[in-house]
């Protein structure tokens, strides 16, 4: 099966990707100023004590020795321990990954549900008043950075309604109502700019397709407007939109770093940021590797989805 071979090739390609990413990040963490032991101790503790802790943690070993020992552990499926708390990194990532996923998928869902109909409407009613309104909103959405949206939302809801999302994260499958209340503002903040670009992409892809001959044929043989748009036009306009959504999901993970910080969500992004502040390199490495692999996998899934949307696409 061609698709199987293709998949294997893609998965194998993850190995150099992982090596490159981890080496770059490890080097960066090593060469930026700042010493995890000193950050931990602050002004307490003598230099002897700091030296002793460095030795215990193996931080006194040369750069390459540390990198390859980290890599060796990784091959055994071990991401190591946080320098600061001693908690296994894999355990911490597993716990936080689901939080970030709920946030990122929520953002995708929000933006697609909002932007797809708007993009279609905008294309179908090209140059009419609703098209202009949608395009202006899409432009605002694309232009506003997500942290600005986040702060505006918090201010708006707390000043106007005296409402703030509940604090203390719960999973969607434990307490759906509270989880929704916790997630709704971060999801909107995260999804807004993606909604803007998805709606713009949908509009232009739809406009392209709507000009095609087969649409004219469909209309002239008397098919109802709705059917033409959804069955004939939308399906063909989806490929660029899907590509965009796949790419954007990666950016959403990046955006989650800031959004989790603002909304106090215990996600992967927050873990990454704290790890960087503390120069806690096993934590940083684990987070970056997880995000990179996830990003690559999502794009692989998107590539495979193409074949379902357009049977003409085949992988050899």
């Amino acid at each position: 099966m061609a698709i199987k071979e293709y998949l294997i090739k893609r998965i194998l390609a993850l190995i150099p990707l992982g090596l490159g990413v981890t080496f770059l990040v490890f080097a960066a963490m090593n060469f930026v100023p700042g010493d995890p032991v000193r950050i931990f101790l602050g002004i307490e503790g003598t230099e002897e004590l700091a030296q002793q802790i460095r030795q215990d943690l193996g931080l006194d070993r040369p750069f390459f020795v540390r990198y390859f020992s980290w890599l060796g552990q990784l091959l055994q499926g071990d991401l190591g321990y946080s320098l600061l708390t001693g908690i296994p990194v894999s355990q911490e990532i597993a716990r936080r990954f689901m939080v970030t996923m709920q946030l990122a998928l929520g953002g995708v869902l929000f933006s697609v549900v909002l932007a797809l109909p708007l993009g279609i409407a905008s294309a179908v009613r090209q140059n009419r008043s609703s098209d202009f309104v949608i395009r202006i909103f899409a432009l605002i959405g694309v232009s506003l950075p997500n942290f600005a949206v986040a702060v505006l939302l918090i201010l708006f809801f707390s000043l106007v309604f005296n409402w703030h999302p509940p604090i203390g994260f719960v999973h969607l499958w434990h307490e759906p109502l509270i989880a929704l209340q916790i997630l709704i503002l971060p999801v909107i903040a995260l999804g807004t700019s993606m909604a803007g670009s998805v709606s713009r992409m949908t509009r232009s892809a739809m406009l392209e397709v709507l000009r095609q001959d087969y649409i004219r044929t469909a209309r002239s043989k008397g098919l109802p407007g709705r059917l033409v748009i959804y069955r004939h036009a939308l399906k063909n306009a989806l490929i660029p939109v899907l590509t965009l959504v796949g790419l954007q999901l990666g950016y959403l993970l990046g955006g989650a770093v800031i959004i989790e910080q603002i909304f106090s969500l215990p996600g992967l992004g927050r873990l990454l940021l704290t790890g960087i502040h503390n120069r806690d390199y096993p934590v940083v490495m684990g987070c970056v590797l997880t995000i990179a692999v996830f990003f690559a996998l999502v794009n692989m899934v998107v590539d495979i989805l193409y074949t379902f949307i357009d049977p003409r696409i085949k992988y050899q």
Binding site: S158, N162, H164, I167, G168, Q261, I262, S264, P266
Partner: peptide, 21 residues
């Protein structure tokens, strides 16, 4: 005692104003 992690001071202020903390 329940300690809730909130790094952002505006979130802390909003939480105490809305009675969550």
């Amino acid at each position: 005692l329940r300690f809730l992690i909130m790094e952002d001071e505006s979130a802390q202020i909003a939480a105490v104003r809305t009675g969550q903390v």
